[in-house]
Nucleic acid binder design. Sequence first.
DNA 1: TTGTACGCGTTATCAG
DNA 2: CTGATAACGCGTACAA
Lengths: 335, 335
Amino acid sequence: MATIYEVSKLAGVSLATVSRVINDSSAVRKTTKDKVERAMKQLNYKPNSVAKSLASNRSDCIGVLVSELKSPFFTRMMGAIDAECRQFEKHIVVTASENDPLHEKEGIEFLIGRNCDALILHVESLSDEYLIELSQGKVPIVILNRQIPQISDHCISLNNELGGYLATKAVIEHGHRNIVYISGPEHKKDAIQRLAGHRRALMEAGIGIDQTRIFTGDYLQTGGQEGFKHFHDSGIQFSAVVCGNDEMATGVMATARECGLSLPEDLSVMGFDNVVFSRYTFPRLSTVDNPITDMGKMAARIIMEDVYKKSMGSINKSFEPSLVIRESVSRITKD
Amino acid sequence: MATIYEVSKLAGVSLATVSRVINDSSAVRKTTKDKVERAMKQLNYKPNSVAKSLASNRSDCIGVLVSELKSPFFTRMMGAIDAECRQFEKHIVVTASENDPLHEKEGIEFLIGRNCDALILHVESLSDEYLIELSQGKVPIVILNRQIPQISDHCISLNNELGGYLATKAVIEHGHRNIVYISGPEHKKDAIQRLAGHRRALMEAGIGIDQTRIFTGDYLQTGGQEGFKHFHDSGIQFSAVVCGNDEMATGVMATARECGLSLPEDLSVMGFDNVVFSRYTFPRLSTVDNPITDMGKMAARIIMEDVYKKSMGSINKSFEPSLVIRESVSRITKD
DNA sequence: TTGTACGCGTTATCAG
DNA sequence: CTGATAACGCGTACAA
């Protein structure tokens, strides 16, 4: 690989001048510029970004930390971030924490060590304190899907409570009163908030809150399966099950069918997130859209603005979910 | 951030010694080693991987180029590669070509410029010639999902022809004779090979090949939709449709239902790839498993072996697909 | 076993 | 507008 030094020799100018035409950092006479460019072409010169990064303390890379790579949820998020970065010739370097708190920390340190200009983080296990401290460090961070009051400037979050409310409200408006809820894990804040929204909708409709009608799942298909079985076996009457996310909703659907129910006539199911496959279920899953792509895009924009000083129009850090009505919730008429 | 220099000062040793304990590259007396480690801890020293990379010409990073980030297919692939790399403390840096031939080249150059120790590529548009030349370059590459005879050592591929064969054969064995096929784009090699397998199964069963029973789609849901409509409108009789991939299969399912068919009684559908959501459709999609995670894992292993000299047991560059029978293909008895 | 000195490919700060 | 020259943080012969 040709270096900047060889280019300078061939062009008969100094290192500094070559560097200038590469970055057009300051004015260079047209004729010398041409000379240099010819030399670069001739040697097929490609700047070495590692050296550049070391010297400039800039990498044009944005670190992204997600919980796992194989989930459709994070995939959409990454895709959105990458698409936005690409427009400004920035790149993302992704690392996964595999849902392990230790890995989360390691991942962050790895990204910082890689000289990333900024970080976009989706972390679940790390404490607020750690993140607050991190946010005061040298490298700018944006936290996705989490709201920490002390550093809300750095947070992009979804109104999960509202989402939970909308989901259950929609089910109620379809005529259901016997509703059960399968929640995500208790240690996940979004799960708690969604459940809170569910409760609000119930209260508002004058339906009492009954702890036995709430099951705590794992946000996976198995959670839906276990939840449905639990309610089914317990003899509780219910015409609809609202789930903390789409994965669990599909678990419910599959298990309900195994128990001989036909959907959506015998059972209505409501999801949350609007992941890709929710359109592929049958009946197609009614759910709450989680605008994760918009949120990812916004995270990237904030960084473009703050770190690279591009001006990006309006920015918004607080997102609202919206209802996606498909066919998995049936309308029942009061008898 | 503390540098190696500050550590050496605090520990009262030279730069070189600190470097040695970091990489335990050569023997260091226990007592000095302790001193250095204490100093590192005290300063919370983190090696700067950029500088390290520049000096050693090693980055411990493996570049991965995929067509798009948001597809479940690539997601699984990346997840598998990352998991394998993680075990050896290597990291992946991912970039997406967005299905654009120009981007593919740019992506590769970006990864090389980033000083990646090796590349794992999933490219569709780049020519064989380009890849052959690339493989003779300095940075080792592994090509996923493509077979180039001249450099087959660098290729990990799936027997797509066999997959296509198995798919159609299974449908035939379920009693179907009136079969139509929706293929992927003609410029994609895997699509062509899958179709070839389909033809072989047909021939073998004594069913003639009829060009009007083949539709060329786009590998997306829309392709399935268009394909089904095409056959439906044309008046051709068919009891089963075999698709070049799962996306198109779901498109067929949705459209068939819109036309009033009930599945799988009125129409059998066969997919290819066994993507995540194929388990979520109803009826659950019968398909051909594409062992993309195994292939990704193997790509990583080859690099561990060749580049980092880890010994990794057996390696295999040619993968066979296998049938996944679920409920979307009904059994019909010959009348 | 340890230290010195140079190189990796760029950027940035000065003078000129 | 251009050119020396010193960083950037670390690895590594070579010497001691």
